[in-house]
Design a protein around this nucleic acid. Sequence first.
DNA 1: AAGTGGTCTAGACCACGCA
DNA 2: GCGTGGTCTAGACCACTTT
Lengths: 250, 250
Amino acid sequence: MGTTQLETVPEPKYWHLKTVLSEALDSEFAVGEILPNERELAARFGVARATLRQALEQLELEGRLQRRRGVGTTVAPPRVGVAVADPGPAWPGADGTADTWQPVDGGEAIPPAAVAELLNVAPDRPVHVVRRTRMSRSQPLAAELLYVPAESLPGLSSIDAPTGAARARVILRELQRLELESRDQAVELGSARADDARELDRLPGAPVLVVTTRYRAQGRTAAVAVATYRADTCRLTFGDTGGGVRLLAG
Amino acid sequence: MGTTQLETVPEPKYWHLKTVLSEALDSEFAVGEILPNERELAARFGVARATLRQALEQLELEGRLQRRRGVGTTVAPPRVGVAVADPGPAWPGADGTADTWQPVDGGEAIPPAAVAELLNVAPDRPVHVVRRTRMSRSQPLAAELLYVPAESLPGLSSIDAPTGAARARVILRELQRLELESRDQAVELGSARADDARELDRLPGAPVLVVTTRYRAQGRTAAVAVATYRADTCRLTFGDTGGGVRLLAG
DNA sequence: AAGTGGTCTAGACCACGCA
DNA sequence: GCGTGGTCTAGACCACTTT
């Protein structure tokens, strides 16, 4: 990585810097390798540290870099493809063997206004909540909150309900007794809340992809899941819509 | 639920600022209203302009604000839901009446390496390319590049092919003569390239949701589309997987 | 204790939209 | 021409991890 001089170009310095760095990453660095620290990089390119940081920020947003306070900046591996809607509609926790979700906690809480509206319950009514984490290669990919109104789980008595992760499993088990009719999802960009950030090993405000899933059963919305995926490391895949839907179309 | 341990958490100024502003947006501002300018806001909150900007940046990322150079900062309307996989697999341009995509340009070009690999063609082979824009309420939502290898369009002679948008329409029409077998998609975070940024009425580097769609026909990948959606204004929806897939599952 | 990235400041100038 | 947001600087200190 040489000291490529920055010419006076119409494009912003940080943009040009990002291009130069990006090419250097392709040709001169291996995945996992540690870059020189920010102060040295800034000096080497003859820019202020803030400007250098603006370039690094973009590269991190694109999943090319990974920065960790107290450690350094490393070259990130390619994003992992994460199946979000494959292979068919299923209740959370129903995948059996290959389930990568781990229930963390369970309880009751008042859902966010947006979720209450989707569930069609009063905005101040507490509902069952399950917290889960999705791992891959012992690295956290996503943190999820699943909201289930009491009406959806008639078999769940509040007497025999344990607490913590055990309770989460009970709620998930009860859910699977319902016949799932359909499921729809939405993806949008967000920034990690403090609790999600801790779970995802990121700083608060880190960019995340928020996947909202609506589960429908018995003619109404039976549950809503809000999953936040690390935007830097994840590529969300929406599985092959072949076979099944072709029956519909044909 | 939850262990609300109150650690010694020195919350960054910009984070607190973001919370305060967010609440103010909810209670004191209407959609479309113009906020005071950055210098005044910074003075009002007693912080440097850079710090204030860090808070505004996050709020813009979350779709709460819209900032435009030379104009000002306005309160953004709620994100629009954009159907990306609904209702079933179809070639681009096949929606008939309600098609919101507008072909912009057509021609030939060498695809990016990642696309060439998906298409299973040599990385230096030019392919047909269609540029389209997706509009909603006369505002651009997405810019797309559709890559189609010549082998996928045996009926397209290079003699009678026009140029520009007309050519784009010819390519799309030819595509629809193939029987589409399946389609899969992936969503990831990216930053707008200069050309996409211009099309989307944003600055280069603006956060976008990149949707990569792989169209399969005749047992192979017949086309690949890379669509970049404005992350600030779009919520991507993946339609109801009910009916059709239930046939598979049941 | 040393070194890293994260936050913050107080300025300056530039690019753009609009009257 | 004026006011807006966008870029850039040269510092300082803080939070965190590792040694």
